[in-house]
Design a protein around this nucleic acid. Structure first.
Length: 404
DNA sequence: TTTCCACAGGAATAAAGGGCGA
DNA sequence: TCGCCCTTTATTCCTGTGGAAA
């Protein structure tokens, strides 16, 4: 494509600052930390109690936070640690440090340990993600922690992404095992997976989950408090139509009690109004924003999915178009083998297709139901698309364009 | 109560790929 | 360059599951 100077009429794509309805749009973004956390009083109280030993300069407890995504676990952690650091400055002989990593994208204890080392080291001496024996990486980590000394709180956000528990076993025991002598360590594990705690081996569970704080989903009233707090900072006065905040809160509470989702919805509705130069954000904007967000999520999720996974989904999409869904795993396998072969790919095995279908189900792109027809029919699963064929196809556009 | 079906999914293992130190 | 150590993705094998039918 090139830019030309001809006279063909075309859409005006020049940029100019539009009259904004936003005062401080960032206040609707996830990373914005409010001065006060609303709607989480019970949780904050229990969390606060669990952190109390730190300020008494005792060995910190290991704390495990669990609750669905977007219910304020990370925000509460940031908020309380900020407060704790501030108060710790006034306590004699208390030297408090915090390290926070997000374990999203880190599949193993090894990778998480590397991430921690790199978080603690300066950019010049960072280590790479592979190549070192596991013992060396732990050695680096303990050396860095000892070098800090004092009390060190290690926050492992989305800790359920780590598939093995060797790091979760080692960290809480580092001091008693003599791996660390100077620093007093406390581990704060944060998990979205409610079942993660039960999957841990009992040794790990007893040490990591010394103190537990569960975060319940926000109900509509609590979400409304959160949204109102952000709205006042984010938007200019009297920009939101009556009922907009309530509507976002109601959708948020209905979907999953996820504040992040409700905030995204309000942000998208605001963006939509701004795009159209509307002076007010209305309920109609919210409805449309909701549709847009749902499609975007699906399309993005599919685009980033592995090649074979996309072909498995494509096979199911074809069956859906032929009105043959819900379809059993073996039927999807046949359709998948056909499209993979047509595209000059070696199809993966039935076992792998099962794994892909399981992942797609978890992503909410398809839904799977188990059936049991007893002695004659046995037990099996049926799958169907959970999203519209058109949005799935948009996500699959890369492989569809290449399909002969 | 026992049997049986049609899988689902866990466990073990292999292959390929990539960074590191010697 | 080579061997080591890790990752990711795949395969094979096999046990577990649970409700209808016998």
């Amino acid at each position: 494509m090139y830019l030309s100077n001809n006279n063909h009429s075309m859409t005006d794509l020049s940029f100019s600052p539009s009259s904004s309805i936003f005062e401080q749009r960032e206040a609707l973004l996830e990373e914005w930390t409010p001065d006060e956390l609303v709607g989480r009083d019970d949780e904050l109280q229990r969390y606060h109690a669990a952190l109390q030993p730190v300020i008494n300069n005792e060995s910190p407890s290991n704390i495990f936070l669990y609750g669905k995504s977007g219910v304020g676990k990370t925000a509460a952690t940031r908020y309380l640690l900020q407060t704790l650091k501030r108060d710790a400055a006034d306590v004699d002989n208390l030297d408090l440090h915090t390290v926070e990593i997000n374990c999203d994208g880190l599949n193993s204890s090894y990778q998480a340990a590397v991430a921690l080392v790199n978080e603690l080291r300066d950019p010049a001496t960072q280590i790479s993600n592979t190549g070192y024996p596991q013992a060396s990486v732990y050695q680096f980590l303990f050396e860095e922690l000892d070098a800090i000394s004092g009390t060190v709180l290690i926050v492992l956000d989305e800790v359920d992404h780590i598939r093995d528990d060797s790091l979760l076993y080692k960290l809480p025991r580092a001091r008693s095992n003599g791996d660390v002598t100077q620093a007093k360590l406390g581990v704060i594990g944060i998990s979205n997976d409610l079942d993660f705690r039960n999957q841990l081996s009992s040794k790990v569970r007893s040490s990591l989950c010394e103190k537990e704080v569960s975060f319940s989903a926000y109900d509509a009233q609590e979400l409304q408090l959160v949204l109102e707090q952000r709205e006042q900072v984010a938007f200019k006065p009297d920009i939101l139509d009556d009922g907009v905040v309530q509507m976002c809160a109601a959708y948020g509470a209905k979907d999953s009690g996820d504040a992040r989702q409700a905030l995204d919805l309000l942000l998208e509705a605001g963006d939509l109004a701004r795009e159209r130069n509307d002076e007010l954000v209305t309920e109609a904007h919210v409805s449309e924003a909701r549709k847009r967000l749902q499609t975007d999520q699906v399309v993005e999720g599919i685009r980033n999915y592995s090649n074979h996974g996309q072909f498995v989904l494509y096979a199911l999409t074809i069956l859906a178009e032929e009105d043959e869904t819900p379809a059993r795993t073996k039927d999807i396998l046949r359709a998948y083998e056909r499209v993979a072969t047509e595209n000059a790919m070696d199809p993966v095995s039935l076992r792998s297709v099962r794994d892909y279908l399981g992942e797609l189900d978890q992503l909410g792109i398809i839904s799977s139901t188990e059936f049991n027809r007893g002695k004659g029919g046995g037990k099996y699963k049926e799958h169907e698309l959970e999203q519209s064929v058109s949005s799935v196809k948009t996500g699959l556009s890369e492989i569809l364009d290449a399909t002969p």
